[in-house]
Measured scan of single mutants.
Amino acid sequence: LELTLRVGDKTWHFKDVDEEFVRHLEELLKRGAHEREIEEIIREWLR
């Protein structure tokens, strides 16, 4: 999967994204996660 995600003024483009990561992001967005929380999840995933 490829994913382009825009949060606030930042845009990330990922290739070979894990479906579990996408589901986790979807859940965060559904519950109205704040920009900082989403950025933290992305940084963790990139490690």
Rank of each mutant, 00 (worst) to 15 (best):
L1Q: 12
L1R: 12
L1D: 12
L1H: 13
E2A: 06
E2M: 07
E2P: 03
L3S: 02
L3G: 01
L3A: 04
L3Y: 10
T4P: 02
T4S: 08
T4M: 09
T4H: 13
T4I: 15
L5M: 05
L5I: 15
L5P: 00
L5G: 00
R6H: 13
R6W: 03
R6C: 06
V7I: 13
V7S: 02
V7G: 01
G8W: 01
G8S: 02
G8V: 01
D9A: 06
D9C: 09
K10Y: 09
K10R: 09
K10M: 09
K10L: 06
K10T: 13
K10S: 06
T11I: 13
T11G: 01
T11K: 03
T11V: 15
T11R: 02
W12Q: 00
W12E: 00
W12D: 00
W12C: 01
H13E: 03
H13T: 11
H13M: 04
H13A: 04
F14G: 00
F14E: 00
F14K: 00
F14M: 04
F14C: 02
K15G: 03
K15N: 07
K15S: 07
K15Q: 08
K15M: 07
K15T: 07
K15F: 07
K15I: 08
D16T: 14
D16N: 15
D16K: 14
V17N: 08
V17T: 15
V17Q: 10
V17P: 06
V17S: 14
V17D: 10
V17A: 12
V17C: 05
D18Y: 04
D18G: 05
D18R: 04
D18F: 03
D18L: 02
D18P: 13
E19A: 15
E19I: 15
E19G: 11
E19W: 15
E19L: 14
E19P: 11
E20R: 10
E20L: 14
E20W: 15
E20D: 13
E20P: 15
F21Q: 04
F21D: 04
F21A: 04
V22H: 03
V22N: 01
V22F: 06
R23D: 04
R23F: 09
R23Y: 08
R23P: 01
R23L: 09
R23T: 07
R23V: 06
H24N: 11
H24E: 10
H24R: 11
H24A: 09
L25I: 11
L25W: 02
L25K: 00
L25N: 00
L25M: 09
E26P: 01
E26C: 11
E26I: 14
E26V: 14
E26H: 14
E27N: 14
E27R: 12
E27P: 01
E27W: 13
E27A: 14
L28R: 08
L28A: 10
L28G: 03
L28K: 09
L28F: 05
L28T: 06
L28S: 06
L28D: 03
L29D: 02
L29T: 06
L29A: 08
L29G: 04
L29C: 05
K30A: 12
K30S: 11
K30F: 13
K30N: 10
K30Y: 13
K30W: 11
R31D: 09
G32K: 04
G32Q: 05
G32N: 07
G32V: 05
G32E: 05
G32M: 04
G32T: 04
A33E: 05
A33T: 12
A33P: 03
A33H: 09
A33R: 08
A33F: 09
H34I: 07
H34W: 07
E35D: 10
E35I: 13
E35Y: 12
E35L: 11
R36P: 06
R36F: 10
R36V: 12
R36G: 13
R36C: 05
E37L: 07
E37A: 07
E37G: 03
E37I: 09
E37M: 08
E37C: 09
E37Q: 10
I38V: 12
I38D: 00
I38Q: 02
I38E: 01
E39S: 07
E39Y: 09
E39G: 05
E39N: 12
E40V: 09
E40Y: 10
E40F: 10
E40K: 12
E40P: 03
I41F: 15
I41C: 06
I41G: 03
I41E: 09
I41W: 14
I41N: 06
I41A: 12
I42M: 03
I42A: 01
I42S: 01
I42F: 07
I42T: 01
I42W: 10
I42K: 00
R43I: 11
R43S: 09
R43T: 11
R43Y: 13
R43A: 10
E44G: 07
E44H: 10
E44F: 08
W45K: 04
W45Q: 03
W45N: 02
W45F: 12
L46R: 05
L46Y: 11
L46T: 05
L46Q: 10
L46I: 12
R47C: 05
R47N: 08
R47I: 10
